[in-house]
Computed example of a mutant assay.
Amino acid sequence: MAQHTDQELISLIRESDYAAFEQLHARFWPELQKLAYKKIGDRQDAYDLLQDMFIEIWEKRETLNFGDRLPGWLQKRLWFKLSTYFRNQGFRKQHQDDFKVYLENENASDFDPIELKEAEAYYEDLLAAINKAIDEMPNRMREVFLLNRNEKYSVNEIADRLGLSPKTVRNQLERAILRLRKSTETYNPSALQILFILWIIKR
């Protein structure tokens, strides 16, 4: 197979040349894999994240702005994927741990084991909806919300950090929580699932 320049690869990929895409993959995967693994520390997660990134590139090949320098563009896209990964992982782990403690305090033994299993599966779907709602928040609202929920910053601490008034911070948090409530409106939860929803949107 002829080796193309980076710009030639971009042009060919835009024309849906899959051989060019495979060449792109082979040329840049090893270095990107090293970077992803260095940041994540888990080979499988790094592989999956990078695989998702390349799939997205192929699926969006006709509309992506690859920029002038392909290596730099790919690294920036990897940083974006990594930031999303860490944001979602942090949110997920915190709420899994907190909800487990909450159930213990609420005497979870009163619930049927099968119902608990269903709630765990439901949790995955609900969390996906919540993360989507967070990703779609305006930048400032998302920043305020994550500082409060993930970093445990108080309203006043967020105000000081971001140079906002406490009233503005409270307004942003209220709007963020409203968005989360709306993101769960289409669900038809069981009693235990309702308990989870109430916990996550009111805590």
Rank of each mutant, 00 (worst) to 15 (best):
Arg61Lys: 12
Phe91Pro: 08
Gln89Ile: 14
Ile57Pro: 05
Ile57Gly: 09
Leu49Asn: 08
Gly90His: 13
Trp58Val: 04
Leu70Met: 07
Ala36Cys: 01
Leu74Arg: 12
Phe91Gln: 14
Leu64Ala: 15
Leu70Cys: 04
Glu62His: 10
Asp45Pro: 00
Thr63Asn: 05
Asp68Trp: 02
Glu62Gln: 14
Ala46Asn: 02
Trp58Glu: 07
Arg69Trp: 09
Asp45Met: 02
Arg61Pro: 07
Phe54Gly: 02
Asp48Trp: 09
Ala36Tyr: 00
Thr84Leu: 09
Phe66Gln: 02
Gly72Gln: 15
Asp48Gln: 15
Phe54Cys: 03
Asn88Gln: 15
Trp73Ile: 03
Phe54Arg: 03
Asp52Ala: 11
Gln51Asn: 11
Tyr47Thr: 08
Tyr37Ser: 07
Arg61Ile: 06
Trp58Phe: 10
Arg87Ser: 14
Lys76Ile: 12
Asn65Glu: 10
Gln51His: 10
Glu56Arg: 04
Phe54Ser: 01
Asp45Cys: 03
Thr84Arg: 08
Leu74Met: 14
Leu74His: 12
Ile40Cys: 03
Tyr85Ile: 11
Gly90Phe: 11
Gly67Glu: 12
Gln51Leu: 13
Gly41Trp: 06
Leu64Lys: 11
Glu59Val: 08
Gln89Ser: 14
Arg43Val: 11
Ile57Thr: 08
Tyr37Arg: 07
Leu64Phe: 11
Trp58Arg: 02
Arg69Pro: 00
Arg43Gly: 07
Lys81Cys: 06
Asp45Asn: 10
Phe91Asp: 13
Trp79Asp: 14
Gln44Cys: 03
Phe80Pro: 00
Trp79Gln: 15
Leu78Phe: 05
Gln89Tyr: 13
Lys60Trp: 04
Met53Lys: 02
Leu70Ser: 01
Leu64Arg: 14
Gly67His: 13
Leu82Tyr: 02
Leu50Met: 02
Phe80His: 13
Tyr37His: 10
Lys38Thr: 03
Tyr37Glu: 07
Asn65Gly: 07
Thr63Pro: 01
Gly67Phe: 12
Trp58Gly: 04
Lys39Trp: 00
Glu62Tyr: 06
Thr63Arg: 05
Ile40Thr: 05
Asp45Thr: 04
Tyr37Pro: 02
Asn88Pro: 06
Lys38Met: 01
Gln89Gly: 12
Glu62Gly: 13
Lys39Gly: 00
Met53Trp: 00
Arg77Phe: 01
Lys38Trp: 02
